[in-house]
Amino acid sequence: MNLEAVKVIYRFEMLRTWNTLMQSVASPVISTSLYFIVFGAAIGSRIQEIDGVSYGAFIVPGLIMLSLLTQSISNASFGIFFPRFTGTIYEVLSAPVSPFEIVLGYVGAAATKSLIIGLIILATAGLFVPLRVEHPLWMMVFLLLTCISFSLFGFIIGIWATNFEKLQLIPLLIITPLVFLGGSFYSISMLPPAWQTVTLFNPVVYLISGFRWSFYGISDVGVGVSVMMIVLFLSACLALVWWMFRTGYRLKQ
């Protein structure tokens, strides 16, 4: 195992965050604060409690997930797309590193970054609404699994994308609607029955539901199902990455 390589890739990616600290950390924090002000304080004060939780507090897990998903995907996809775009990827491809080490370095850094952002947002949320975390261990498990699997997904997009537009395409067209319709701002039970069924096909529902359960002990779907879904998604991403390296998809001709 070429640990030195994993280390330098990881450090290089983290350094990029450090150099662009404002974009990397400040912007998700600012946008989340805006959500809190608008939905939590302004509109939220007119909305009744959901399952005994004030609306402002209710949306915290969903908001964190929203940032986590978009950040994981954009960090990881940019991290691998940019060297492909500039051509510096030649060095990684010609180095004595295995695909696993490459993924560990890039995805590890992207996941770390989103985890940090997630925790910062959590702390920011604490300034606006009273927070309680009933299952802190499970909260960390959900946080970690989400960061890792969506960073992997971002890595896949970064390899798949052939231009900057495509890089934005999936987050914009698929992830954002799925998160918004996945119960970030409402409980699934508030929907008409037919839509509740439709919603169950949205994988993000399981993420948010499980994550919210770790905070307030309330969930739309069973916690076990949530964990299973996220592990399933993680496995699918792993399989796809494995296939990409095996065939050299868009990396090697």
Binding site: N2, E4, A5, K7, V8, I9, F12, L15, N19, P83, T86, G87, T88, Y90, E91, V92, A95, P96, V97
Partner: peptide, 25 residues
């Protein structure tokens, strides 16, 4: 390589150290 493929914002020292680590040294 033939093309001048370098990360534009990297420091000279950092990019050389990166290469060294990447090759396991």
């Amino acid at each position: 390589p033939q093309e001048l493929t370098l990360g534009t914002f990297d420091l000279v020292r950092n990019t050389v150290c990166f290469s060294r680590g990447l090759f396991g040294k």
